[in-house]
């Protein structure tokens, strides 16, 4: 994957962490107006990035664990694990599924430490993106591909859940952020699951 692709993804992952205004601005700026690749959003047209206030409102209402009706971007919550783990964890909506255990096991193998704030969610989207990036740089390609296929297969489910939950809520303060995040997830989905070239092909097709 070209450096620019990874740099974009790195910037985007900021959107899924609670960040300061300054970090947020630099993230939006990093791939927004003057990024080398034309804006990867919407139907070729430029998608308006939410203001910091809109981002913060969206983050508080939708991405913060514990807030009723929120959808934290944590893989375990969107995968149904069957009899893998303990009785409680069959079905969606539970933390610490096997995906979390697997991420922890991979990090142990690579002697990488995950900050304690992610103890309950080692398979948080930010951690997955960073780990995936680290593997892109160092690990053999096919193993990285296997990791990405495994740990990003939930993104379409997550994106769908987000869209339907926002439709239910139709809170206009969240509207701009919703469309933006939906596009971001679309980008991540394509790049992380199908690869950057697939994304470029899509963009060309869209703008043709």
């Amino acid at each position: 994957m070209p450096a620019l692709g990874r740099q974009t993804i790195d910037a985007l992952s900021v959107l899924f962490a609670r960040t300061s205004e300054e970090d947020y601005a630099s993230a939006i700026h990093a791939y927004g107006e003057d990024a080398a690749c034309n804006a990867p959003w919407g139907d070729g047209g430029r998608l308006q990035a939410p203001s910091f206030e809109e981002y913060r409102h969206f983050f508080n209402q939708v991405l913060t664990p514990g807030v009723p009706g929120s959808l934290p971007p944590v893989e375990s919550l969107y995968r149904d694990w069957g009899g893998h783990r303990a009785g409680l964890q069959h079905g969606q909506g539970f933390y610490l599924g096997p995906s979390a255990a697997h991420v922890r096991q991979v990090c142990e193998q690579l002697d990488i430490s995950i900050p304690t704030e992610f103890d309950a969610m080692p398979d948080h989207l930010i951690i997955l993106i960073e780990l995936n990036e680290f593997l892109c740089e160092h690990a053999p390609v096919e193993q990285t591909r296997a990791f990405a296929d495994e740990h990003f297969s939930w993104l379409p489910v997550y994106r769908g859940a987000l869209a339907s939950r926002m439709a239910e809520r139709n809170d206009d303060q969240l509207a701009v952020a919703c469309t933006y995040y939906d596009a971001v997830l679309g980008f991540l989905e394509t790049v992380l699951l199908q690869g950057y070239d697939a994304f470029e092909a899509q963009t060309r097709a869209r703008s043709a």
Binding site: G82, G83, R85, Q89, H90, G91
Partner: peptide, 11 residues
């Protein structure tokens, strides 16, 4: 039974 047989919440 659901918990003992690790069934889903709707199963």
């Amino acid at each position: 039974c659901q918990m003992k047989n690790t069934l889903g919440p709707k199963e």
